[in-house]
Design a binder for these strands. Structure first.
Length: 496
RNA sequence: GCGCCUUUAGCUCAGCCAGGCAGAGCAGCUGACUCUUAAUCAGCGGGUCGUAGGUUCGAUUCCUACAAGGCGCACCA
């Protein structure tokens, strides 16, 4: 230690030392608890009548000393409960030992259950032991920990002192479980595909690159698992899904973290219409099993996730919200239209990008209640099958809720020759400077050449779904450890 | 990537506009208190004012650069 410890830290070290001198192991091995705090509160009547002893364990989060008695709250994984300590009950020596404990310490306590004059369920402690000494002070109990930087960097503190944070991540886990249950129940098989790929694909995004020394080979972290899952459909896995991290080397903001969690599933012998029915059923199943309701308050909007969801074609929605049949326009007319509506068209390259801009800016914000936008222009969808009634379109849809996209699905392109032509169009866009355009994946085309059954596939950003169902407006609040810069330059280098 | 804002005690925040000994509440320490609950009462300690420069007799305060974070815009899921 170069710097002198502040008093607050020095006192904690001194208490640790005194405990050791008294023969107390400040970091023991185990504790047999009989109840969680929530169980004691739930079973209070029975426990108090029987007079049975309960044993709990957790962190001291508050402390109210009264001379020869003391109240404190102990927080465990299920909640918190008050303990009551009396010198008369414990004897002088034991009671004074408690003086060496403090807020932040993890202790075990046993005793009988009663209700205080103010009505709070409380444990009257007959014995206790130290389970872990805390050498750092906790953030304040009343204001909590507000500094977002510390909350994200030291999530453990956020979890200890800010009520509701654990709940967000419990909900997250339930959402993922309910998706698994839904798909498992319908015969989908969960699989794992490579996170490190020789060639990336399945989305338009810039990838991360890493290097495998053993093979002296550059590898890409996956931006999507689509092309691998479709290879599995070729191989006869007719219903597959994967929930995994994808990695995209792009901007970060409250809707984007460089690593994020995606669900993708593929369903052989179905088309995008079947898929929309399944997706709305899945969304309803998830929200009702997790929240016990099909309605969500998000911001100012009350959103109902009860099927059926509104379905509008891309062109129809544009006619309704823009008043123009944009699908009939060429690139120049589209850009003129965008400029006319005050949009920034500087970065727009190609007809597809112009259509995308118009829809994103002028249509999608209107889609508050769940809406499937269908039949996207072929330029925007290099992996989707051509529409059976209009060769300018694909059989693709995106689901919008509250103006944001909650998934992207289509009748999968299974014609290897058409797939090659689409890849080649992407390659041209790439050579024109579109860094996010799809690279040609010969190995994937080869797989299609062996014959892929007609299929429908869907992708859903899990983090955004968690945001929707937990009412959080930043992706960083639904990811336990969001990506952060190191506090000091070089702090991430293990060799110093 | 651009713009705006933030960074002061362990935590939550004042102070800065108009330069002059570094402040409060909680937490901590000492004492009182055997049903408190933001316990109360009396007293005490605690600071690299984000980092580095500049201006000045003197900088937490003014200026510049840098760093981290937040919000908005742009891009994306």
């Amino acid at each position: 230690m170069e710097r002198e410890l502040s008093e607050i830290l020095r006192v904690r070290r001194e208490k640790l030392q005194k405990l050791i001198e008294k023969g107390v192991n400040p970091f023991p091995y185990r504790y047999s608890r009989t109840h969680l705090s929530s169980e004691i509160i739930a079973d209070f009547e029975k426990l108090s009548e029987s007079g049975n002893t309960v044993k709990i364990a957790g962190r001291i989060i508050s402390w109210r000393g009264h001379g020869k008695t003391l109240f404190a709250h102990i927080q465990d994984g299920s909640g918190k409960i008050q303990i009551y300590i009396r010198k008369d009950d414990l004897g002088e020596e034991k009671f004074e030992l408690f003086d060496l404990f403090e807020i932040g310490d993890i202790i075990g306590a046993e005793g009988t259950v009663f209700r205080t004059r103010m009505g709070e369920v409380t444990i009257k402690v007959s014995d206790f032991s130290l389970l872990a000494k805390s050498l750092k002070p906790l953030p304040e109990k009343w204001h909590g920990l507000k500094d977002k930087e510390i909350r994200y960097r030291k999530r453990y503190l956020d979890l200890i002192v800010n009520p509701g944070v654990i709940g967000t991540f419990v909900t997250r886990a339930r959402i993922i479980k309910s998706i698994r249950d839904f798909l498992d129940d319908r015969g989908f098989l969960e699989v794992e595909t490579p996170a490190m790929q020789v060639l990336y694909g399945g989305a338009n995004a810039r990838p991360f690159v890493t290097h495998l020394k053993a093979l002296d080979l550059d590898l890409y972290l996956r931006i999507a698992d689509e092309l691998y899952l479709k290879r599995l459909v070729v191989g006869g896995m007719e219903k597959v899904y994967e929930i995994c991290k994808d990695f995209r080397n792009e901007g970060m903001d409250k809707n984007h973290n460089p690593e994020f969690t995606m669900l993708e599933f593929y369903w052989a012998y179905a088309d995008y219409r079947d898929l929309m029915n399944l997706v709305e059923e899945m969304m309803f199943s998830v929200v009702t099993s997790v929240l016990d309701t099909d309605e969500i308050n998000y911001g100012e909007n009350l959103i109902s996730l009860k099927p059926p969801y509104r379905r509008m074609t891309f062109a129809g929605a544009a006619r309704k919200y823009i008043g123009v049949d944009i699908i009939e326009l060429d690139e120049k007319s589209l850009i003129d239209l965008a400029k006319e509506r005050g949009l920034d068209t500087d970065r727009v390259k190609g007809r597809g990008a112009a259509l995308d801009l118009l829809s994103s800016e002028l249509v999608e914000p209107h889609l508050i209640q769940p809406t499937f936008l269908t039949d996207y222009p072929v330029e925007l969808s290099p992996l989707a099958k051509i529409h059976r009634e209009d060769p300018r379109l694909t059989e693709r849809f995106e689901l919008f809720i509250n103006g944001f996209e909650f998934g992207n699905g289509f009748s999968e392109l299974t014609d290897p020759d058409d797939q090659r032509r689409r890849f080649e169009a992407q390659a041209r866009a790439r050579s024109m400077g579109d860094e996010e355009a799809h690279p040609i994946d010969e190995d994937f085309i080869l797989a299609l050449e062996h014959g892929m059954p007609p299929s429908a596939g869907y992708g859903l950003g899990i983090d955004r779904l968690v945001m929707l169902l937990t009412g959080n407006s930043s992706i960083r609040d639904v990811i336990l450890f969001p990506t952060m810069k190191p506090e000091t330059p070089g702090a991430g280098n293990p060799d110093g």
